[in-house]
Design a binder for these strands. Structure first.
Lengths: 343, 343
DNA sequence: TGCGGGCATGACAGCGTTGTCTGACCACCG
DNA sequence: CGGTGGTCAGACAACGCTGTCATGCCCGCA
């Protein structure tokens, strides 16, 4: 254990060291370091010289503990490597940085218990606030947060119980725009592939699909398949739905990964179906055919969440609000009719 | 400023509160909280009950300050939203989490001065160690780190000066495998599009390209174009190099973004050139034609960097080492000859 | 010469923990 | 019955900094 601390025990001068060397009190050093007034220029200069010479750096841990806040916020997501979350992360970090805060990021890997553990650790560190993409709607960690009075903003999915600031994407509107787009291009038989219905967003999008179909008077033959999906699972139902009566001519996919699976399946089956995917992705324009997508803006969502959090940190005591961020349909060739509709 | 602290001043019980309530000393509470021996079961039980009742949570900031380390590491990259870095980030966070550490992520946005500021802030917080993708080779922040004795691991790019642990990707091998692959498919006139030569990796890859061309006895007509690149800039030189004498039949791109630019340019020009890109990307298999790539493994690099950092934290005092991670050529259709070579 | 007032500086406590050391109490033994 | 040793518990200082308050000094003015 001695080795462990070598790099710390080694001559890290404190204010006391500087004070002794400069023949002033610790408080004066503090004043100089923090640019507080009331220090004679020559004294300040002397102190600065010693600081320079000893290589002193203020210990922010001590400082922050004295001051009661940590100038740190945290972001808890499912998987940092997922482009959606990494864009959220970049946006949140940016908001934090311009406000002199630091960002701790943590992955809960989709596990509520891990999420709880992670959040407890963050609360114990007294992070000033947390942005969470909750792993489940019951949010077992919510009680912890309640007790700790740590401000929190939920993202992408709501949580039952105490009302909290929540930033959502307009799942309903997004799906509706997708369906309407396809209908405008003459499609009437459309399939929907959604993610695991354990996810709130997956259910939202499915329900929006069904509702839109009904409101537009489309055939309501159940062509909804919920995940988790693989290229193989998509493949299977696709080959059914394209061969029976009223074969589908278009597909809507409920997220990134499913879009990928569907594209692979479509390619294998050599089916020229139209496709609209939920979530934009890099290079969507380069796929053949270019994929039309419902774009939600993760950067904007992250930014909004961080801004809301900082508003709370600055004392905004208004009622918790839910913000629904608009989506945008990016039309590329894939939504346009290619197969021959059979009626 | 009062509002600012509402959520903190509000009843956050300390060990002293618990101690008073349980009629024991603070130290005993500490013992119970930390599962230290030497507390009678009934006393411990009483203390636990009070802890539960008051909702006490240990203040890790205070604890860590007493103990001298923070159980925090940091990752400094250029842009968290870039898939390469986000995968690195996910891997580093994972390594940190399984070791009970937390990860602070920060973007330097490619600016050396911002990087310096960010690193100074991290050092001031006494993070236990830092993984950095340095913005430039001179690494002005290195002096700060030297003085603070904070362990550091550099990633993706080396830094001049004091030797440090460095995790690099095998740029030379990667490019060589790309060139050899193309040559094996009959290509002899190959162009290289690299990123801004201000980047060390960009220069490495360019140099590797030139060297490999020479060693394989290929025509050494200079068909190297360094960035920054846009689809337009690629477009321009492409149309030149495909029309003059000894027209090129294949292209190698030096990173993700350039691959994208090149794909767009090739599509516009309707040129059936072969393409090998540096960096794999999601959906590369779905592009038409599927893009052959040199795959570097960001997750493995991040993991390796974190592991090396933790080894240092645990007292590994051996000499700084540079690890070069292998790359892997993922052959998809795009490397295969499609255009008609003109000889 | 004495005094009020401002300025520069310092002493001290405290943020919430933990490490060290001391002490009370009890049991056991010769 | 006194000494010894073990167990449980607490007092106190310290981590490095900042907020509060006190002090000393010099200046100007009556």
């Amino acid at each position: 254990m001695t080795a462990l601390s070598d790099h710390r025990t080694a001559a890290r001068p404190t204010m006391a060291d500087v004070a002794a060397e400069a023949h002033v009190s610790v408080k004066t050093v503090s004043r100089v370091v923090n640019h507080e007034p009331g220090v004679r220029p020559d004294t300040a200069e002397r102190v600065r010289a010693v600081i320079e010479r000893l290589g002193f750096r203020r210990h922010d841990g001590a400082r922050l503990m004295r001051q009661g806040r940590t100038f740190t916020i945290a972001l808890v997501v499912e998987d940092l490597a997922n482009p959606f979350y990494s864009q959220v992360g970049a946006a949140v970090e940016r908001e934090a940085r311009i406000r002199q805060h630091q960002l701790i990021t943590a992955s809960a890997e989709g596990s509520p218990s891990r999420e709880r553990a992670v959040i407890e650790a963050l609360v114990n560190r007294r992070v000033d606030g947390i942005v969470v993409v909750p792993a489940d709607e019951s949010a077992s960690s919510d009680a912890v947060l309640e007790a700790s009075h740590t401000p929190i903003v939920y993202m992408d999915r709501p949580v039952r119980g105490t009302p909290r600031d929540t930033i959502l994407s307009d799942n309903h509107g997004g799906i509706r725009s997708a369906v309407e787009h396809l209908v405008a291009h003459g499609h009437r038989n459309i399939a929907f592939y959604g993610d695991d219905p354990a996810f709130w967003t997956a259910r939202q999008r499915r329900d929006a699909f069904v509702a839109t179909q009904q409101s537009l008077g489309l055939p309501t033959t159940p062509r909804v398949s919920m995940g988790p999906h693989s290229p193989a699972s998509v493949h299977e139902s696709l080959s059914q739905w394209t061969t029976g009566p009223e074969p589908i001519t278009a597909v809507i996919t409920g997220n990134n990964r499913i879009t990928l699976a569907a594209l692979l399946a479509l390619r294998e089956l050599r089916l020229p179906l139209s496709l609209v995917g939920y979530d934009d992705f890099e290079l969507a324009a380069l796929i053949d055919p270019p994929v039309t997508v419902v774009h939600q803006d993760p950067a904007a969502m992250g930014q909004k969440a961080a801004q809301q959090l900082f508003a709370r940190l600055l004392g905004d005591e208004s009622q918790a609000q839910t913000v629904v961020m608009p989506t945008r349909l990016i039309v590329r060739a894939s939504g346009v009719r290619r197969g021959t509709p059979n009626r």
